[in-house]
């Protein structure tokens, strides 16, 4: 049994914001919230279930503006969405590896982001696609780059009254590809011990754009901006894979815990960056994805 709480199920966005401002805990798919409540870690007075807010469920694609993903879109929806596979492969790779089918059926992309876990599988891919968050509060809405959304472990920029409303993902360049590598001890039902996402746009062999993001490599999901900047404009044949790995890993700041040592994570990161880069490169050159 979950501890007792008051349940609100608004269908109106502002009503939800108002309830949140009053202290109600937002619940979407509940795959983080109910786990925390079962374990006694979270004992809210009130929950506001936002699943009744219809336009937060919508997910659309437009070739000019890209993806507009309602925060309530489930990982399963993204996993099964052919267009995502075609244009945002890393996002498919991220969402399709969250937990299990049952978890993906309920768990939402908004919940994944707002939960603020450094291991969140959808976040790295969204970061490298340059996603922005549309945030709504009682006084209106604002647009925040996803890269600026996280302020610490489990901490975000959302104000007391604010909800993540939609996620906007620009369309990828036609000559681009992406990859997400999730490293886990177990091959399913596991959180990323490390995750590496890469978005790569090529002009022949010149790196037109490169974005790299890490999961579980720092207190929050992060981008490897310096490495990206150094490589942008370069001919990829002129740089060694190993150097890319080293450079990117140097930007990370993983910690030692009983899950793995910092030393190991850094070593692994070098490898995974190389693998992700190679994979993205192959996909870009293959022309598809």
């Amino acid at each position: 049994m979950l501890p007792q709480f008051e349940l609100y199920r608004p269908t109106n966005l502002l009503e939800a914001c108002r309830l949140k401002a009053q202290g109600a805990v937002v619940v979407a798919g509940g795959t983080d919230v109910y786990v925390a409540m079962h374990g006694g870690k979270l004992r809210p007075q009130a929950l506001v279930d936002i699943k009744g807010i219809a336009d937060m469920q919508e997910a659309t694609y437009d070739q000019n503006s890209g993806l507009t993903i309602g925060a309530l879109t489930t990982h399963r929806t993204i996993e099964e969405w052919e267009l995502v596979k075609q244009k945002y492969y890393a996002l498919f790779e991220g969402c399709s590896q969250v937990g299990s089918v049952q978890i993906r059926q309920r768990g939402t992309i908004g919940g994944n982001i707002c939960n603020g876990a450094p291991s969140a599988d959808s976040v790295g891919p969204l970061l490298v696609f340059g996603a922005e968050c549309l945030v709504v509060g009682e006084k209106g809405q604002r647009k925040v780059p996803l890269a600026g959304f996280f302020t610490g472990p489990k901490k975000t920029i959302l104000a007391d009254d604010e909800l993540l409303y939609k996620i906007l993902v620009p369309p990828p360049a036609p000559n681009s590809a992406s990859a997400y590598i999730k490293y886990t001890r177990r091959r399913a039902m596991d959180l990323a011990l490390l995750g590496v996402s890469i978005y790569l746009a090529l002009d022949k062999s010149r790196i037109e754009e490169l974005r790299i993001a890490f999961a579980t490599a720092a207190p929050t999901p992060m981008r490897a901006y310096q490495t990206e900047a150094k490589l942008r404009g370069k001919d990829y044949r002129s740089i060694s894979l190993a150097d890319i790995g080293k450079m990117a890993a140097a930007e990370a700041n993983p910690r030692s815990s009983w899950r793995a040592s910092r030393e190991f994570r850094l070593r692994l990161l070098e490898q995974l960056v190389q693998q992700a880069f190679t994979t993205a490169l192959q996909r870009a050159e293959g022309g598809d994805l």
């Binding site: 109910y34 049952q102 978890i103």
Partner: peptide, 12 residues
């Protein structure tokens, strides 16, 4: 659709 019934409220 398959779901974990332990992580869903009855009222849902």
């Amino acid at each position: 659709k398959p779901v974990n019934s332990c992580l869903m409220l009855a009222v849902e």
